[in-house]
Write a protein that binds this DNA or RNA. Structure first.
Lengths: 137, 137
DNA sequence: GTAACTGCAAACGCTTTGCACTCCC
DNA sequence: GGGAGTGCAAAGCGTTTGCAGTTAC
């Protein structure tokens, strides 16, 4: 999705297209791990030194309401944001917490099997697998 | 696991076997949904009116360290506790938040396929599927 | 022009911590 | 008897809220 499409989506839903919102969105999709609220805040301060945490939170809720990102709450109270809303596995290192996405033929096949097996309308999912990444071994 | 086995496990790891710890454990495994911290606290107050939230939290961390329960952090900041550490799907109602476990031949088959496909040592997992339960439809 | 948004600061709620008293072993 | 555990209250910290000034449209 490019900037114009995002702006159009905002307006269509009655939200204004501000530079802060665009910047936060671009930052999240630019990363292949899943940044935390604070990481986003720190990154935004580089270009927007006066941005506030309140704005970060409000924008993240907005992006979530629009279905553009998924919020992943973890045990230690941390929250991370994932722009990939397709079926995938979050491979999470139990030591350093790094997250990478994993997809394969088998995971896709499995997901469609489960979807037909469950006799309900599924409207979201989350699949985490914990392991030790190469750096932490 | 019965009371004696639990006590033995506590002692083996250098923890004392107290009535509060036993009661919290029994409460969690007695339920087939996944209780929140506050639900556990409220339930414990019935038999132990002076029990404190601090004790609940410390005991939950202990049970988690022993691998007896899994902590499930959610978006809205809520945390729930799941005594089922085998592979299963948490079927979560997106409206009322009720959670029921789901298992089938296909899910088991899939999990072993994935385990052999991923060339890493897996030490934990979590699989949530969101839907609308019958009561909320 | 005006309604929505931002930034700031205060309020909030859940979790953790510190400490004296108590209980397991 | 001694050290770990409990209960209580205070502190901590991430998130939310309220509001005056600002910006998109």
């Amino acid at each position: 999705m490019d900037d114009q499409e995002l702006f159009a989506l905002f307006r269509k839903n009655g939200y204004k297209a501000t530079t802060q919102r665009l910047a936060i969105w671009k930052y999240i999709i630019s990363r292949d791990d899943h940044p935390s609220t604070d990481q986003i805040y720190q990154a935004m301060k580089v270009d927007y030194p006066t941005i506030s945490l309140g704005t970060i939170y409000k924008t993240l809720h907005l992006l979530k309401d629009l279905g553009l990102i998924q919020e992943l709450g973890f045990n230690e109270g941390s929250v991370r944001y994932d722009p990939n809303t397709e079926f995938h596995i979050n491979m999470i290192c139990s030591k350093c917490g790094e997250i990478v996405d994993y997809e394969s033929e088998n995971t896709k096949k499995f997901w469609s099997t489960i979807l037909s097996e469950l006799e309900v309308k599924v409207n979201g999912h989350r699949f985490d697998v914990y392991y030790e990444c190469d750096d932490c071994k």
